[in-house]
Amino acid sequence: MSLDTVVEDIRDEARARAEEIRSDADERAERIVADAEADAEELLEERKREVERQIDQEREQKLSSAKLQTKQARLEARRDVLEDVRGSVEERIASMEEDREELTRALLEDAVEEFDDDAEKQVSGRADDEALLLAILADYENCEYAGSVDCLGGVVVESEGSRVRVSNTFDSVLEDVWEDNLRDVSATLFDQ
Rank of each mutant, 00 (worst) to 15 (best):
S2A: 12
S2T: 12
T5R: 01
V7D: 02
D9C: 03
R11M: 02
D12K: 01
E13L: 05
E13A: 02
R15S: 04
E19H: 05
E20V: 09
S23T: 09
D24Y: 07
D24V: 10
A25T: 08
A25N: 07
E30G: 05
E30A: 06
E30W: 05
R31P: 03
V33K: 15
A34W: 11
D35N: 15
A38H: 13
A38I: 13
D39S: 14
D39E: 15
A40D: 06
A40Q: 09
E42N: 10
E46G: 06
K48L: 14
K48A: 08
R49A: 14
E50N: 08
E50V: 07
E50F: 07
V51L: 15
E52H: 14
R53V: 03
R53P: 04
I55Y: 08
D56F: 06
D56H: 08
E58L: 14
E60H: 06
E60L: 15
S65F: 10
S65G: 10
A66L: 12
A66T: 07
L68H: 01
L68F: 02
L68W: 02
K71G: 10
Q72E: 14
A73E: 11
A73G: 08
A77C: 09
A77M: 10
R79M: 09
V81L: 12
V81C: 07
L82M: 14
L82H: 00
E83S: 12
E83G: 07
D84G: 15
D84A: 15
R86I: 05
G87I: 06
S88G: 15
R92M: 11
I93Q: 01
A94N: 05
A94T: 02
S95F: 05
M96S: 04
E97N: 10
R100Y: 03
R100G: 03
R100E: 03
E101D: 13
E102K: 15
L103G: 00
L103A: 04
L103C: 08
T104E: 07
A106S: 11
L107A: 04
L108Y: 00
L108T: 00
D110H: 01
D110P: 01
E113T: 06
E114F: 03
E114K: 03
D116I: 06
A119T: 00
E120G: 06
K121E: 00
V123C: 01
A127I: 07
D129R: 03
D129A: 13
A131I: 10
A131N: 04
L132Y: 01
L134R: 06
L134K: 04
L137C: 09
L137N: 03
A138K: 14
A138N: 12
D139Y: 06
Y140R: 09
Y140W: 13
E141K: 11
N142G: 10
Y145K: 03
A146F: 07
D150F: 05
D150C: 08
D150Y: 07
C151I: 00
G153K: 00
G154I: 00
V155G: 00
V156T: 03
V156M: 12
V157W: 01
S159W: 01
S159E: 00
G161V: 13
S162F: 13
R163D: 02
V164L: 15
R165W: 05
V166L: 09
S167R: 14
T169G: 03
T169C: 08
F170Q: 01
S172Q: 09
L174K: 11
L174M: 13
D180R: 13
N181Y: 12
R183V: 14
D184G: 13
S186L: 05
S186R: 05
T188S: 07
F190D: 06
D191W: 14
